[in-house]
Design a binder for these strands. Structure first.
Lengths: 231, 231
DNA sequence: CTCTAAAATTGGCTTGACCAATTCGTGCGT
DNA sequence: ACGCACGAATTGGTCAAGCCAATTTTAGAG
């Protein structure tokens, strides 16, 4: 059962795939211990360092569990990570709805923590956005900064990361290319006005209003996105 | 700039983290080529096979791009996949706080959409969890199913994916390994009771109570996780 | 039958070597 | 002076062998 080597992929990837196939086919059962490194390398016809590289890939994706001195075990059900997240199959509607719900909740947490300095940073982001629009540029970075400044006020890196990831999905190079005509000056002006409304609510310490406005901003952004969809 | 070796983690993980830190600090800029393998191994004070193992981890998570004969390049913006939480310095506290806020918000959206069938599925998940606990097994899959059934009620794939990803970070193979003694039967019984309380609130159509209980469940889970941290 | 210690087995990491792909430098021709 | 081709150098890919450390297994003594 040697590895069928092909030049297109690195050997560790091919070995890792071979081991995954052996697990999926039942040759190695869940929870069972694999042959020792030296034995498995020999069976697969590769060197021990190459096998170790493959095992690292399998450890990272949760397929196996490696215990020094004991052996390599097929991870039990539930420890394997799901397939890498891909925005394929997920519509812009779902993405923007999720952002609306999640960012409104995050804003609710962050609202009580805004210092004057943080409000000033939001103001600067808005002014930068305004200047970019007037120069005919796309203020994507200012848009991103605005959302991340808010998420950052929670002091929670996980929330900030989730907001950043969802924002980047909204503005991934592929989705941006497919909707180049979406980024009109009028649409950015609308977004700017919505950011200003959010900041005004924060300055008034009106958390419910800020949340409602953030929710509305993202629903409006969704509408602008959908309406730009080619027909 | 040698790697500060610690016995708790594999050397390749420590080397990969060190390289990530060098990138984040600007020592290696985006798009730039890293020193050659032999040079970098020497700088970090490890062997070349150990460095290669680290590079595989970095290749898998999208941090670097490896080109045979040419070199190792820091992936440009947009190519980097989200980092595993341990690598980004995100604490379990932040992860669980984020889950508490986000899943309570998602539950608020989902609460009005629960059919009797969906409530029955939640009940089945709880019964399966109870049976697993009584058999001395870790009901991780039932735990995951419970949270994903709720997120799935929103009909929004993005929300479901975010919940799944955050759940899997909580239960990644690495974090599970480091806290093997966390998964006690008593702790799982507490989690089961909390799941039951959430379901009871949903059955009573009491959305605020369901949200409050979900929030409390995840804060309790965080407390159980933190208290299991070795001192 | 139990316990302890040694041996064996296992993974972790290193050194060193050779192969293959890419890049760079040099020399020659136009 | 520029372009092209070829060889050298540099780069990553893979391998063999060895030693260290943790865990498991086995054998012997009580």
């Amino acid at each position: 059962m040697s590895v069928n080597r092909t030049p297109e992929r690195r050997l560790y990837q091919q070995v890792a795939d071979q081991i995954r196939r052996l697990i999926q086919s039942g040759h190695f059962t869940l929870g069972a211990r694999l042959p020792a490194e030296r034995e498995l390398a020999q069976q697969l016809g590769v060197s021990r360092p190459s096998l170790r590289e493959a095992l690292i890939a399998l450890e990272i994706d949760g397929t196996v569990e490696i215990r020094m001195g004991s052996g390599i075990y097929v991870a039990s059900n539930g420890e394997q990570k799901p397939s890498p997240p891909a925005a394929t199959g997920e519509s812009p509607v779902e993405l923007m709805d999720a952002r609306a719900t999640l960012e409104a909740a995050i804003l609710g947490l962050a609202a009580g923590r805004f210092t004057q300095e943080a409000l000033d940073e939001l103001r600067q982001s808005i002014e930068g956005m305004r200047a970019a629009i007037e120069e005919g540029r796309k203020p994507i970075e200012h848009d991103r900064q605005f959302h991340l400044l808010i998420a950052g006020q929670t002091g929670n890196g996980v929330m900030a990361r989730v907001v950043a990831e969802l924002f980047d999905e909204r503005h991934s190079p592929i989705s941006s290319q497919l909707r180049a005509h979406f980024d009109t000056t009028d649409n950015w002006r609308c977004a700017l006005a919505e950011h200003e409304a959010i900041l005004a609510a924060l300055e008034m310490r009106d958390t419910p209003a800020a949340q409602m406005r953030m929710h509305r901003h993202l629903e409006e952004s969704r509408r602008r996105w959908i309406e730009s969809e080619p027909r």
